[in-house]
Amino acid sequence: MADTLLTNVTSEVASELPIKNIDVNLIVYIISIIVIAYVLTWLLSFILIHVSERIGWYRTSITMTIPLLKLLVYIVALYYIIIAVIEPSLTQMIAFSGLFGAAIGFGLKDLFADIVGGVVIIFEKPYQIGDKVTIDDKYGEVKDIGIRSTRIQTPADELVSIPNFTLFSRPVTSGNAGDLAMMIVIDLFIHPSSDAEKAMKILKEALVTSKYVIISKKYPYTVLLEDFPFYKRVRAKGYVNDLRLEFEFKSEVTRRAWGEFQKEGILPPSFVPPSGTLRGEPPQTST
């Protein structure tokens, strides 16, 4: 019923618009605009990503502008297509675009929900290109925020496309919120009889001497101890200076700390702690 009503209203408004004759030239023109818009967005992404890679500290500041620029290009392209077809007045254009959008929305509501999700991501910035995020149980680095979907690269080097609409229905976690540094939690489990104080000192020094760490008032670090029935957990929290190196950072600190633990006679626990203690990751009882 609503569909029929909307179709009738759309037809009435459309009949009052000065629609041009659709010929081959017009179709070629529209295709050209779409191709130019696509090439331009690709070129913008390519250039800005390469510039951001060379700029170091401000990498994410550059990449965060990419989705916005893409949106601008597509809006301008759409504007040129509309005026090429109907040459409307401003009032007509507003009325028509509202009805046109609603009409298409009924048929392609999922696609439009993704586009709206894309616009929300651009302006609200729950995550940005370059962030480490978890969306719908998928973890990885945001490589691209498109009009329809967000592409993330997982640690296993898979490129996962997630519809932008997911933002409205699923929790989204950003590990760094636009910053290049990201907090990393490193857990080491030791035998209950081992010298926990010495283990804490070693883990602290392994963390602060790492080649990947960044420490300042903005990026503090801490080392904590927790006692469990069959083991002790020594936990270090510190920031990696570039989130792309999170796994190298974890590995380097763990390896060096365990090397020193062995020299000091600090033993791993006989009981392997359950993996749930490490946010779904396997326990790092030894390396």
Binding site: G56, W57, L180, A181, I214, S216, N241, D242
Partner: peptide, 8 residues
């Protein structure tokens, strides 16, 4: 080194 965040 400042650009590459090696100096804090």
């Amino acid at each position: 080194l400042k650009k590459t965040r090696r100096l804090w």
